[in-house]
Amino acid sequence: MELDDVKFVRGTSLTMPKDWTFEFETVALPHAGGLLRYALHLEGEKARAEDLVQDTLLSAWRHFHQFEQGTNCKAWLFRILKNLHSRQMRRMSRKPEVSLEQDEFRLAAPERISANQQVRDAFARLTPEHQEVLQLAAVEGLGIREVADVLQVPQGTVMSRLSRARASLRSVLQTRAFVRKEGL
């Protein structure tokens, strides 16, 4: 087996002008998974979520020279995604749909599903607003200021919404047997 050396030499990029390819691939593309998780929450359907992530990444790539180096690229990408989605929603005036997958695990028998799936099940029972704030803060690890920036609401609103969302999730989880074991 031969190991080949892929080196990034500045100024020789052929796929993007102004030599931003390396930076973009390093700091932006690794967040594609998180973007797709969030897009699925917003769109509720995989094909549309994938299109939204693609549009987000390409928009980010086109405007990457405007990204402030040293700030959180993940938060910047999530903001672009949320803006694109809001624009689409305004244009199409449609409501997000609930995916079939979510319905499937809502109906799964508790004794036959794993602890992780029960948590996802409980999460799916929260309001879209609570799901969104938990997804951004707890799952994706954005800070309060960054979540406020993505959602375009005051920080205080994010903090109170997050507290209520945690309380709601805990309340749903406490009806499950495994929670007693986990001590939540």
Partner: peptide, 28 residues
């Protein structure tokens, strides 16, 4: 602990992003 449990559960069920990445690389 609640955040950890939620993060664990959600990341376990993450969708495959490779198809999107291929399309993005292609467009780029």
């Amino acid at each position: 602990q609640l955040d950890d449990v939620l993060r664990t559960a959600m990341l376990e069920h993450s969708p495959d992003v490779s198809a999107v990445l291929q399309r993005v690389h292609g467009k780029m």
